[in-house]
Amino acid sequence: MTSLQITFYLTAFLALAGGAGLAWSRNVVHAALFLILALLAVAGLYLVLLADFLALVQVLIYGGAITILILFAMMLTRARELPEAMDNPQKPWAGAVALLTFLGLVVVAYTTPWPGLAASSLAHIDFKEIGSSLFIDWAIPFEIASLVLLVAMIGAIIIARPEEGE
C-alpha cells in the first residue's frame, strides 16, 4: 500500500464517520462538529485528487465560514434547548430511500465502463493556471457568481432584519 492509498482510505473513513455522526447524533452541536470533521476530510480528499487550491478554499469557506454561520444559527434559534424529537416520524422511509440511493450509485459506479481511465497521469495544476482560467475562460460565470453572492447577501439582510414592533 502506498502512502497515497493510506491517506485516501484514512480521509475517506473520516469523511464517512463525520457524515454518520451528522446523520445519527442526538446532540445538535455534536452534529455540527461532525459536519466540520466531514468537510475537512473532504478537503483531504481534494488533496488526494491533486486539487490543492480547492482544498484550501474548502478549509476556508466550509471549515471556517459556513460552520461558524451554522453554529451561530443554532445559538440564535436555541436548538439545544428545544430538543423536541430531532427526528421525523418518516425516519424509516428516509433510511430506505438513502440506502437505495447508495446501492444504486454503487451499482452504476461499478457497471459503467468509464472511458479514458488508464490515462490518469499525475498532473499538478498550480494556482496561476486556475486563476487565469477562471478570469479568462470563465469570466462571465464568475461575474454572475459574484452577482448571486451580492443578491444573497442583500436578501439575507432584509429577511433576517427585525421588523418594527418586534
Partner: peptide
C-alpha cells in the same frame, strides 16, 4: 456521503 446527507435531510 451523498446518501448520508440525503438521510439527514429527510429524517
Amino acid at each position: 456521503l451523498f446518501s448520508l446527507g440525503l438521510y439527514s435531510v429527510l429524517a
